[in-house]
Design a protein around this nucleic acid. Sequence first.
DNA 1: CCCGGATCCTGCTGGC
DNA 2: TGCCAGCAGGATCCGG
Length: 326
Amino acid sequence: MPELPEVEVVRRGLARWVVGERIASVAVLHPRPVRKHVAGPDDFAARLRGRVITDVARRGKYLWCELDDDHALLAHLGMSGQMLLEPPDAEDEKHLRVRFTFDADAGDREPSPGGGPAHGAAPGDHLGGRELRFVDQRMFGGLSLVPLVTTPDGLAGGTGRGPGGEPAPSAPQVPVGVEHVARDVLDPLLDVEAMVARLRGRRTTVKRAILDQTLVSGVGNIYADEALWRSRLNAERATSSLPAAVVLDLLEDLKVVMTEALAQGGTSFDSLYVDVNGSSGYFERGLAVYGRAGKPCPRCGTPIVREAFANRSSHRCPRCQPDPHA
DNA sequence: CCCGGATCCTGCTGGC
DNA sequence: TGCCAGCAGGATCCGG
């Protein structure tokens, strides 16, 4: 399930390959992934045709291609969304939903006004006639075409850029519909103290709080469980009962676990492929509790337990993360 | 406003 | 072997 690290892997791949490319055609093969584009699939396709992708940015789990007309092609991968670059003659994926093709001669030889793509396209990088495919089995994700706006804090943006993967400056704007999303723990412009205060101000439990994308973005069920384990916190702890230092440590653990996952995802990344099952190398080796019910806690050996949580599940070590109500 | 639960989707798995 | 319930879960909507 794509959470922040998986989405960032996709962002980097897209930034490398499609920045500077001009969209030649858009084929919407299933209407649902474009449902958020209110003007409909035909309008979506028609307005994207001819646009040049100038940058690829991200905030939390939202990903977008900035275009040359102050709009963005906004994407959310949902549970099972993929962005794949494939040769045109590659067989269509079973759940191929939207296909983008690009002009054959765009990008690599036409410098943009600012002196070429600021990021991505290094010498020798060529799209090579490949097309971009949005593949999504369960269609919780989607695409839309929306204007870019500056957010109220005046700095806006999510994590963008960083050709070498270093902490990157934030994008100057976010797409309409993403303004409510908080910065994520990898965002260099994140105000950690303010985030701690907001988290502690909520009258809810700590896992619910870190899954709330308006408080801290990019966190899903997997990394929530992993970070709580690292912080030795039970998911049911009340946020208001946690000292600021504990919440600060939890945010740091989120950053650590996501950074490690990102490093793993980056190594096995070849053609923008992010497995629907999340089965990159990281998931085999790095997870301490998620999906490991009955297996020993890496820290103390106590068997991990799986519990119901908000129509899904939580995983924890019963010894390291004792029930606060017990 | 704030919180929590239901809902959307499809394919896979497991029980009978 | 076939059928169907249950499960996976991010975002959004809605009721309290």
